[in-house]
């Protein structure tokens, strides 16, 4: 159904007249600000994925675990599971932040690149597959489960991961595909 989008104040949304779904969001969307957030997030991904999320004291040995290691260990026994875990918890979020970073960077310096439409399209696709918040909840479930069996200590990676999650959520809630298209077309 065709709906007309009226002039709106910042923070207001336009909804479809037929199904009440939000079709346009007049959000704060500043490419330079988002670019800075994305760069911070990109730097956080390295420690968040590689440093131990927690360590556990079991059978007299202290075992550490991080996000990538867990997925890599299943690559022989269940390659599909391993692939999906790496995709949703590491590759998709990183690529998503990277693509938003590149497009924001271009828009911030008012450079009209022919790659931008492709990037916007990729960004839209990746938003579905970035599941950091789901990983966070699984991590909490796993930690509560394990606390009953052994001593458990949170590692540095955990704090980086929480930081990355918060940054990621801020970026996604402020990013607007519509706004970026408008900016791109007005260049």
């Amino acid at each position: 159904m065709t709906s007309e989008i009226p002039e709106m104040k910042m923070g207001h949304v336009a909804k479809c007249i037929r199904c009440d779904r939000v079709i346009y969001k007049n959000s704060w969307c500043n490419p330079a600000g988002l670019f800075a957030l994305c760069l911070t997030a990109l730097m956080m991904t390295i420690p968040a994925f590689n440093l131990p999320l927690f360590s556990i004291h079991l059978l007299g040995i202290t075992e550490e675990t991080n996000l990538l290691q867990g997925a890599m260990m299943m690559i022989d026994s269940a390659p599909l599971v391993s692939f999906v875990v790496i995709l949703c918890a590491a590759i998709a979020p990183t690529l998503l932040i990277l693509s938003i970073a590149i497009s924001s960077g271009y828009l911030a310096i008012n450079y009209k690149s022919t790659y931008l439409p492709k990037l916007f399209k990729i960004t839209r696709l990746l938003i579905h597959w970035s599941m950091l918040e789901v990983y966070m909840v699984s991590l909490m479930v796993a930690i509560f489960k394990l606390m009953n069996y052994a001593d458990l200590y949170l590692g540095l990676g955990f704090y980086f991961f929480v930081g990355l999650l918060l940054l990621n959520m801020t970026i996604i809630s402020n990013y607007s595909n519509h706004k970026y298209w408008e900016k791109y077309q007005s260049l």
């Binding site: 290691q69 867990g70 299943m74």
Partner: peptide, 17 residues
């Protein structure tokens, strides 16, 4: 998307044990 949760938990458990 929340049903991926189970897969993430498996990956964590595999790496711990």
């Amino acid at each position: 998307r929340w049903s991926i949760l189970d897969l993430f938990i498996i990956s964590i458990m595999v790496s711990v044990f």
